[in-house]
Design a binder for these strands. Sequence first.
DNA 1: TACGAGTTGCGTCGATTTCTGCGTCGATTT
DNA 2: AAATCGACGCAGAAATCGACGCAACTCGTA
Lengths: 319, 319
Amino acid sequence: MGDEALSAGAVARRLGVAVTTLRTWHQRYGLGPSQHLPGHHRRYTPADLARLEIMRKLTSDGVTPAEAARWARQVPVPGPAGEPPTVVANRVRPGGERDGGGQTIPVGRAGPAARGLARAAMRLDSVAIGETIGQTLATDGVVATWEGLLRPVLAGIGERHAATAGLIEVEHLLSRCVSEAFATVARAGSATGPARLLLSCADEEQHTLPLEALAAALAEAGVAYRMLGARVPAAALVEAVNRTGPAAVVIWSHTLATADPAQLTALLASPRRPLLVLAAGPGWRADSLPAGVVRPVDLAEAVSLALAVRDSLDQSVEG
Amino acid sequence: MGDEALSAGAVARRLGVAVTTLRTWHQRYGLGPSQHLPGHHRRYTPADLARLEIMRKLTSDGVTPAEAARWARQVPVPGPAGEPPTVVANRVRPGGERDGGGQTIPVGRAGPAARGLARAAMRLDSVAIGETIGQTLATDGVVATWEGLLRPVLAGIGERHAATAGLIEVEHLLSRCVSEAFATVARAGSATGPARLLLSCADEEQHTLPLEALAAALAEAGVAYRMLGARVPAAALVEAVNRTGPAAVVIWSHTLATADPAQLTALLASPRRPLLVLAAGPGWRADSLPAGVVRPVDLAEAVSLALAVRDSLDQSVEG
DNA sequence: TACGAGTTGCGTCGATTTCTGCGTCGATTT
DNA sequence: AAATCGACGCAGAAATCGACGCAACTCGTA
């Protein structure tokens, strides 16, 4: 293991701050070299440097230095190895099974449960739908249920709907059942501590289900949040952010039409700028997002990001 | 990181009130930091925060702020021993019980629970909202909760929203919580027998909450139903009716714009014409309804009509 | 039904406190 | 000799303070 010990000046130059500031950070926030004898020169290990990097990043994102320091101090310094992406087990069917043509919903290779759910939906059988969802939810959890069961079926219906202009009732009924199932999970979960997360749809955005999935997943993990719902005008969102000062905000946009980057910009410019802004959903174009906005690909990624924020803020006090 | 001293802004954000309100509470009710030098910044200890939490909880329960403050001031806050409890002059109110004012939602004479719910909503406090609704739902049932608690508060918000063009976030958050609560009831109820009832919004109609209330009330009464949800085109509705052959159909319309009588006519002309068609909601004009359509005034009336249908079918089938 | 009195949350304004990065100085380490 | 250390202080920015006032609600009364 490379045993490099950086001097104060080197670290300062690397971070872009003055040497004295490093000293101040050490005294004021306890952000210094892991071991240091008073009067002697400071020697920063790579781990110490990583901590400082976090500090730098957060402060340049607009976080209060005191708070950023609290975070940097508590985050277990991430090892050099990159985090393995959370892989959602995608149950592949063993045989190249072919399943019904006829009046069904294309669910792709999403497993038998999905096909069953699709059938129940076609029958408008809300009881069977509710049972299937509840079962899977209890067994596999929210994230897996969403990715492996609900999303495929919903996507399949949407596809068919676009092609044949029918199936609207099916889509409505299923949506409603999914919504109910998520709501049940959300209400069952016991939130711990104040809500530091705000979930909202973009302006004019109607689709709430993915956000509800996120909410349910968070509730399942014991994370408190506030959910605003569909069609939230930018002004209202900013207003809510200013009132509640969330650490992170998730904005969902389903289509390009509702993905106005101005909403994000307004958020970033708000007085109580949230620590993290997540632009979720297929509507957002990666190249049009303002700097400082993160774009999760997955429900799983969104959840883990939210969890990270929660964990790091857990013991800290706002400043 | 042992002693947390929360700043005014942090506390305000945590409680969901404005910073100025905290100051007002301090001056008016003596609810401030235990020790505070005039001119200096306020530093709230955990004990102080606990006192404010009591204040928050009481006001969300509908208690007059002045009285809530009196309680909060007297409750022995379990704090670090050694310091004598701050005794504040107990300003007794000369007049009798009064309430109202400030940035609140007009609920009229709808009871303290409604006022508490309104306050919780203004604070975007979804936990308190959920608790209040759940409590009332369990105690009074769906119908009473809707008429006596939810509808007044929602109407108040809507009114205010129309007047000031604000409060959208509040409306969204509350709607979401109500929706969740109803969903929980709907899923808890055990349906008996096949669903002979179809609930649907009119075409283009966005408001689902009243229908959800009806659904929850039906579930509470053990009636099975199918719920299609918002924005159901007439063709899709007819399709659903033909597929499932319900005995009764409820169509909700909130505004005149979505209350096209043609939808009802189409229903009555469908091959599997339902026994009963209910046009619910303030959108429908009594004089424009085709013959054979019933228009319930109330949630209660809609429920009892649905029950009547269920019962009559039961006898005819079983007999 | 309309109106005045009492209550209450919160926006605004100029002054003050607090935070934060960094420069300076004499002594010490490398 | 160069770099750094600890202590101290400063200046700009952000947050907060106290005072004041407004708007809107409720309730009793005319």
